[in-house]
Design a protein around this nucleic acid. Sequence first.
DNA 1: GGATAAATAGCGAACGCTCGCTCTTTTTTA
DNA 2: TAAAAAAGAGCGAGCGTTCGCTATTTATCC
Lengths: 258, 258
Amino acid sequence: MRNDNTANWPQEQCFASFKHCLPVCRESVYSEFFEAFREDIKVKRESAAVKNLKIIFDATFELASKGGFDAMSLRDLSQSTGISMGGLYNYIRSKDMLAQMVNDFLSQRLAPLAYSLNLESGSPRQRLATRLRIYIYMGSLFRPWYRFVYMESKSMARQQRDQAKQFDLVDTAKLKEVIEEGVAAGEMHCANSELTASALLALIQDWYLKSWKYKQNETSTDDYANFLVSLMDKLLADNDQHTHDQTGYNDHSGKNNQ
Amino acid sequence: MRNDNTANWPQEQCFASFKHCLPVCRESVYSEFFEAFREDIKVKRESAAVKNLKIIFDATFELASKGGFDAMSLRDLSQSTGISMGGLYNYIRSKDMLAQMVNDFLSQRLAPLAYSLNLESGSPRQRLATRLRIYIYMGSLFRPWYRFVYMESKSMARQQRDQAKQFDLVDTAKLKEVIEEGVAAGEMHCANSELTASALLALIQDWYLKSWKYKQNETSTDDYANFLVSLMDKLLADNDQHTHDQTGYNDHSGKNNQ
DNA sequence: GGATAAATAGCGAACGCTCGCTCTTTTTTA
DNA sequence: TAAAAAAGAGCGAGCGTTCGCTATTTATCC
């Protein structure tokens, strides 16, 4: 949009520049959503549909974030949205389907949109840093979606549950792959790429799971992304020069007993 | 118990030695539990009570881990345990109280038991490593308890919900405190102790939240604890010698815009 | 272009069902 | 055999869902 220096992702790696280059934003997301679920939604007039979808799903995130999706009744949702029970059912096929729509839209529309952005160019370290930033930025933009899918996937149908685990494994594997490329290129050093990748993913997820904590101590999106990238650099630096049982208590680094 | 070299925690920092020194184990935990909730439990004969408490709570963990606590009905629980509805109510006051018992027992009995073990002696690095190991070992021993409290605290009463957040903040603060002692002693280096502490806590929680993943790639308790301690060492090492924008893309380390 | 008709969207009471929980009866235990 | 524990049918409340109806918007016609 604007032609200032915030619009040149991925050269300028900050949240603002990412937002400018992402072809969807918090405001336009429900237009995409409506399009994705046209055949499930009885309402055909787009203007009203998009407005009410935003009301319904924003309220769902709000209610589900305290008490969980199961504890939220459709009467609660009706009251929060100001839309009657019958009205709600013009937008969803069932309560279960409501949760599934969130899951499917995030995993099939939102996430692919971002993760295909400029991940192929640059050194392994650049690509890994870019990937981490994208995860964090996406988590900031669509935090309620990510939170919901993480917390509620266990309440969903078999297929969605399995898919959620699969995505976790795939994300871990992608991080691991880049790490191993960096190791092969001599740019990184890592004794256990699998666990390192898992740790990075856990820190990505903590960003949207514990947003209350990061809000409380005033950690911004860029703060966290920068922290995570510098953490990554420390984890993957050449550490043979100054470690190995510094001041006491055994310091194993490989596999061990039990 | 046994007099071999696994019984000298915290000098020998492994899971086996920790288990030997902890005054409670997976098998004896429900005796403690019965004692803690004597006045809430109608059944007075200890032998039967302990046996059935184990059956009931183990089944609760199993059922709640798939579908969540809200989705588990007491009829499901009755069927899984082989104990009738009336029978269950000789052990719990209500379904809500069942969840609260798990929360209270973990936070008031189990956790304090371990976290008071030898945390005061040694250098900051030793104490931090020991603390991390304790968290991981406890997470391994009482994984279902930790998982349950993490996932279900949002469904509990106001007091329990607030308490869960409070414990998260307290745990973060304790880690942060030790880090800052290490920094003050010149033993550690850290630009943001708050975020570093948060990250360590997130990795502790990932251990019991994603146990399915770590089981799948055959990561043992000691593997993970060793990995976490070595990660800690890397994060807190003196990193002024080889970082700062290695090969491209800006590498901010402090606070930033937006 | 105003009146009429058709289509769409919203409403909320009512339905069948399952929930947490209670209470009387039966069984087990010492 | 008296006390303790387990059993399971039954209760009312609240759930997700449906459906007949009204209100609103869009299309058609003279």
